[in-house]
């Protein structure tokens, strides 16, 4: 026993213990920090929003050579696809003009019905287009960084959409940059309406591509292909903004596919909407 202890202590000296104890202590500190979520306080959010400008500036300078190569390669691939896309667009043009006419006539009908019902158009929209400068949508805490901030009058919780539908909301606002919390983020919860019959549910981010809808009323009446839009409840998202469509159904939840492919987006719209007060 004594021999083996001596043998071990010859190799494991004070330095060795400290070289393990220090990082272990730091791991425990990190875990307390992580699980305690102390960084969710207002002060911490403010510090995080302020530091993102500096952190992003440093990392974007360092990664700029790789970024240039990546953008160059993407441009070459895009040029290759232009001819095919042009042909496809020509074919779709006729269909699009027909659906555009249908949409305009529906909009006129809705306006007529609203005037007959004396319903007020109580929402006013405005938006700002921003470029995506950082895409971190590949992990369970999926976010984007966009190049608009307080200087452009961007505010916390502003809804963010692509050309086809809502993708998330602003979670941190810096001076020149803002962070977008995506629908697929594990912390994302959005009240939604499913199908033309307007069944309510809660869209929950799954940390991967397809989010699910939980707490759905009359789940048996929902079919694959039904549209999913925002409900407007909660006051963060305006109502009837497209999100996606139903692609799968379980006993207590629905899987949806988003209309917007975040990987292909380069710009987003930051929606600024307000309720018009009736006189």
């Amino acid at each position: 026993m004594r021999t083996s202890r001596n043998f071990y202590s010859r190799y494991v000296n004070k330095n060795s213990y400290l070289s393990i104890l220090i990082p272990v202590g730091l791991i425990i500190f990190s875990l307390i920090f992580y699980f305690g979520r102390f960084d969710n306080s207002n002060l911490s959010n403010e510090l995080r929003a302020k530091s993102i400008n500096t952190v992003y500036s440093i990392t974007s300078i360092v990664s700029s050579p790789i970024s240039l190569i990546k953008n160059g390669l993407e441009s070459i691939l895009e040029i290759q696809n232009i001819y095919e896309e042009n042909q496809r667009f020509k074919e779709m043009q006729l269909l699009d003009s027909a659906s555009f006419q249908e949409m305009v006539s529906m909009k006129l009908k809705i306006a007529q019905y609203e005037s007959l019902l004396n319903a007020s158009n109580d929402i006013e929209y405005d938006f700002r287009t921003s470029r995506i400068v950082g895409d971190f949508s590949n992990n369970f805490n999926s976010t984007l960084i966009v190049n608009s901030g307080k200087e452009e009058n961007i505010k916390l919780d502003m809804p963010v959409s692509g050309s086809n539908g809502i993708i998330g909301r602003i979670s941190h606002v810096g001076e020149r940059l803002s962070r977008v919390l995506l629908i697929s983020n594990i912390n994302s919860r959005i009240p939604v309406i499913i199908s033309e019959d307007g069944y309510h549910g809660m869209l929950v981010g799954q940390g991967r591509e397809n989010p699910t809808i939980e707490y759905v009323e009359h789940i048996e009446k929902i079919s694959i292909g039904d549209l999913v839009t925002t409900s407007g409840k909660g006051g963060i998202f305006p109502p009837f903004q497209l999100i996606g469509q139903v692609v799968g159904k379980k006993s207590n939840e629905i899987e949806i596919s988003m209309f917007e492919n975040i990987a292909t987006l380069s710009h987003v719209k930051l929606l600024n909407y307000k309720l018009i007060k009736e006189n």
Partner: peptide, 13 residues
């Protein structure tokens, strides 16, 4: 963590 928008302490641990 600041860059990725993770809760502080995730990458470090």
């Amino acid at each position: 963590d600041i860059l990725l928008g993770m809760n502080l302490g995730y990458s470090g641990s």
